[in-house]
Design a protein around this nucleic acid. Sequence first.
DNA 1: GTGGGTATTGTGGAAATCCGCAATGCCGCG
DNA 2: CGCGGCATTGCGGATTTCCACAATACCCAC
Lengths: 199, 199
Amino acid sequence: MSGRAYLVDDDEAIRDSLGWLLESRGVACLSYRSAEDFLDEWDPALAGCLLLDIRMDGMSGPELFDILRERGSRLPVIFLTGHGDVPMAVSALKKGAFDFVEKPCNDNELVNRVIEALRLDANQRAAASGADSLNSRLGRLTTREREVMERILAGKLNKIIAEDLQISMRTVEVHRANLFEKMGVRTAVELAQLLAGRR
Amino acid sequence: MSGRAYLVDDDEAIRDSLGWLLESRGVACLSYRSAEDFLDEWDPALAGCLLLDIRMDGMSGPELFDILRERGSRLPVIFLTGHGDVPMAVSALKKGAFDFVEKPCNDNELVNRVIEALRLDANQRAAASGADSLNSRLGRLTTREREVMERILAGKLNKIIAEDLQISMRTVEVHRANLFEKMGVRTAVELAQLLAGRR
DNA sequence: GTGGGTATTGTGGAAATCCGCAATGCCGCG
DNA sequence: CGCGGCATTGCGGATTTCCACAATACCCAC
């Protein structure tokens, strides 16, 4: 398993017991006594999931959650609370929390949720890395290549593209071949599929 | 607004007051005294959103919700409850409920939720109708045309497709032209974009 | 200024695509 | 049996794509 469980709770007894529980089921776990502590060490590259207490001294769980989302984190978050109310649970889930569980809870169930969350995160990261590599390739295109690419995706013939850009057809062919090379595709169809959903 | 709000609650006072509230804000509304009553009249074509009480005589709100989902309904559902607990709210939202609100609630807020839900449903239906028309076009293709299309999307040249299918290149060209016609596209690139995300 | 990256163009040929015209064979339906 | 839909094929020509080879020009950085 690539990711860890990050446990943020100001109650040491909870940290210890949950930490032990997770480790015993093979889930690596790091504990933090406050939201601030976690935020200090947080990095977009941290992979896994976050177990987050609602009420804590200092920054609350939901506050930390909001900050992480603002910073672009998609880390799955499982809220833990001893005093949860319905509106809070609803709000958390609608904002994209992975789960919301009341303490005390069924240990077995919680670990299963954590494992699901880890799997989700792994999948998200795999998808994101694909998107990154795509964007990186896209970024290496020159302006002209991008202009030609747009028109290829619009289904235009090289001849028309040449007229569009007021350059010779030969030049279009060159740009076309170069951008195919850079994008790692062999045909316009592959290019279209590669960029499917985007733009 | 195309959709209606369908209100299911066994408390007549609630049905009347919410019904009136919604109508007064311009949201057409139909009321049902039980989940069974609604289910009897339910049809996948019913557009709008469902306001669903949790506890009712006979079938409960969540039970109705599950049945609707099993039957393929994507009608946005807003749960209403006077005695909601956190696990129930979490379960409902994770299963895809649109919202979960406690009674008594802020009327204004509730109507806004309903309107959001109606908008969501309208969007979903628009997207689905697009998908339907696509599937319908796809369904009109002959077997051969589908075989050829698959290979076009795989980026194969007509020559290779002909070898693949053990037919002449000319035949491939004919199928290709016919399926382009049926799918309403002019180029392979358009076809790829049309089917982006699918298969 | 020299070198590298980018943009540009030309020539010319092999290969592939696009299409109209024409035709054959199979199959199921009325 | 005849009609219509589907699959198939051939011919031939206009158009396009794909590429190798070759070259000019601009701009920026070292």
